[in-house]
Each structure stands twice: as C-alpha cells, then as structure tokens.
Simulated assay, not measured.
Amino acid sequence: MSTSSYPQRNGARKKKPVKKKRKKVSFLRRLTRVFMFCLFMLTIGMGWLYFAPSANNFRYLIADTLITTQHRYMAKYIIGEDELKNRVAEYNQRFDNMGDELDTHTIAAPNPEADADSDAEAAAVKPLVEIEKVTGTGYSGYIMIVNDPTKVRLGIPDKVGSGEKVSSMVKRTGAIAGVNGGGFADPEWKGNGFKPIGLVISQGKLFYNGLGGKDSTQIVGLDKHGKMIAGNYTLGELSKLGVQEAVSFQPRIIVNGKGLIKNAAEGWGIAPRTAMGQRADGALLFVVIDGRQPGYSIGANLYDVQQIMLKHGAVIAANLDGGSSTVLVKDNEIVNKPSSQYGERYLPTAFLVFEHPEEAQIMNIWEGLDPSQIDAAKKRTQ
C-alpha cells in the first residue's frame, strides 16, 4: 500500500468530529430558541398579569387562593403587601357583616301524634345519613344529608394537649359519620389542633371560651330542637336560643333562603371547603369539597359552595374550617380525599352523627384550662 494513502485516511477521519459538532451546535441553537420563546411568553404573561386591567380578577383570584394556604405571605408578590393587608381586612369586615341579618327560618317539627309504625316506615324510606357526589368546574366533593338534625353532637378530643382526627372521634364515640368543625390556632401551620378559635359549646354547656373579652362571635351550630343557628351572637343570646352544639367560624353564606355572596369574585379564592346548611324540613346539609389536587379537584370558592347549598334547598348555611382540615367520615371510612400531605389532621372539634346521641360520652377536656396558657404548637402526645 502506498504511503500517499495515509493523508487521505487522516483527512477522512477529521470529517467525523465536524459532523458531531454541527449536530451539537444545532441542538444547542434549538434549545436556546425554545428557552427564549418560553422567556418571551413568560414576560408577556407576567406583563398581562400585573398591568392589564383585564387581569385584575384573575390576579385577585390567585391572591385570595394563596391567602387560604400556609403560603399567605406569597400573595404580596401578586397584589402587594399593603393590598394584601387591605384585602384580608376587607374580607373580615364583609364576613362580619354577613352574620348580622336576623335569621327567621323555621324547621318542620316532628309530629308527636305519629305512631311507631309510621315512624318506622318513614325511617325505612329515608335513612338517617345520605351521601351524594357533587362536581363542578375544577372541583369534586360530597354532600352529606342528615335527615334528623337532633342526631348530631359536637365531638371533641379525649386527651389534653392534642387534637384528634375526625376518623378517630367517629370510631371512639360510636358515631355513624362526622365532618370537621371549627378552626383552631395553628402557628406556622404546625398546630396540634388543641386550641380552638372562639367558642365551643357541647350538650348545651360552654366547654371553651376563647373570645378574649369580645362581646360576640360568629357561630355555627344547633339548638335543642335541631334548628341550625349561624351568625353573630353574644353568649347571652346563645343561651336564650338554647344552643346545644356550636363552634366559632365564618362567614354565614345563606340566611332566610338567600345567598349572601354575589359572585365568584367575592368567593375568597379556590380551596378545599367544608360547610353546614339546613333545609326547611330540618335536614342538615354538610358540603365537603376536595382541593389542591390537580387532575382530581383544585377546590371551590365560597360562591360555589353557596350555590351547591341553594341547589339542595338550604335556607341557612355557613362556612366551616376548610383547607387541609376538610374531611368526611362515614362508617369508619374517610369518604373524601384530604389535601394534607401528612394525611388527616388533628382537630379540636367535629360534627358527629349518632343513631343514639344520648349514649355518646363527650367530656370537657378544656375544663379548668386558661385559653391564654394553652400551647397551640406543643407536640402531640397521642
């Protein structure tokens, strides 16, 4: 073989890396173009979000949704810190006002002349508890109908220093079903669920008073006849009304058969929700909406919840604690999908349904405790 062939082979070998380099350069150029396009679209999107008048509603929807989470502080990056403070203050004032109108609704009282046979027949036709699926744009959840409102009691934890899961309360007390109740102090979203916000009334007795000198609070509860009570009340008014089971929470969203939230823009963002309502026939309605789970359910605003209640005949309804506390338990099984990454939360209160509520053993674990001295962030003991 002649030596003149070597330079030719060497030249052929040099062409291969050139092709690889060109392919590599071509790929990097495409990647750069994609990146620049995404950056351009992001810039356009952010410009629209922050400066376009048409984006105002969407911007406040994002902010309101963040306000309902443990990342409330992030809302200031959407609407500004001053506007965030104003927004929260505005909602609190609006919620307070929504509890002021006098509730005049009545419920159908049981017929004392009905004989045992007719009672048994009615019970066979209409079970104590019914659960239906509810869905809407972006949300999925359930509505639990309790046909006898006198069968509901307020469940509380059984150990000092810690809240309790609703599923645990249901199993421990022998309840048929249960949903989460009122709110609680939750420092850095790591609370132990033992320090309620406001009042806790059980079996007609004041179990917990965390008003701190306030004259009134918004409550959600039931009187001795099973009539739902919701709105702004003083302790004296609650006593005169004969309130038996109640927690503090807001806002009331339906009163005297009419919704108080005008539209979705006033719905306080998208989140998991729990609410309680009542029909004119006395049946209680518990709406539980899952959220923060893309692909299944993002959540609902309070306007959505209000419309679900109205559709099912509610003449009065009020919001309960939601977010990661939202849970519905039936026959010792969790029906919905709680949003907390740690599973079901430890809570101070729950509305429980019993076949025989007179047999329920519910003791006051806050008796003798000073609310101001309760450590809401103390590690759980159970």
Rank of each mutant, 00 (worst) to 15 (best):
D281E: 04
M363G: 05
G291W: 10
P251E: 07
P53H: 11
G80F: 08
E130T: 10
E132T: 12
N57P: 00
G299T: 07
K378D: 06
I229Q: 04
G136H: 04
N256H: 12
Q278P: 12
F354V: 01
G99L: 08
S372N: 14
S162H: 04
Q8D: 11
R273M: 00
G174P: 02
P7H: 09
I176V: 14
L260H: 13
L260N: 10
K311Y: 12
Y91F: 13
M144W: 02
K227L: 12
Y139F: 15
G47H: 08
L128A: 11
D158Q: 14
F58H: 08
G269M: 07
G174K: 06
I78W: 04
L154V: 03
A114W: 05
L28K: 07
G323A: 06
E130V: 08
A116G: 00
G204Y: 11
Y60Q: 14
S340Y: 01
P7R: 10
M169Q: 07
R22L: 09
G210D: 09
F51A: 09
E358V: 09
E113L: 14
E245C: 08
G267D: 12
S54G: 12
L260K: 14
D281R: 09
M276V: 11
S216T: 15
R59K: 14
G212V: 03
A123Q: 09
V18M: 08
Q250A: 14
F351Y: 15
Q70D: 14
I156D: 00
I156H: 08
I201R: 10
A360Q: 06
P251M: 03
G295N: 03
K224Y: 13
I145E: 11
V243K: 03
V288E: 03
L285Q: 01
M74H: 12
I197H: 11
A246Y: 01
T381V: 15
W268C: 06
A122T: 13
T32Q: 10
F286A: 01
V335N: 04
E121L: 14
N319A: 07
G242D: 05
S297W: 08
A280P: 03
L235W: 06
T135C: 06
D186C: 00
I219W: 07
K262H: 14
W366L: 02
A63R: 06
Q373D: 12
K171T: 10
V34Q: 04
L238M: 15
P357W: 14
Q278K: 10
G295F: 02
S5D: 13
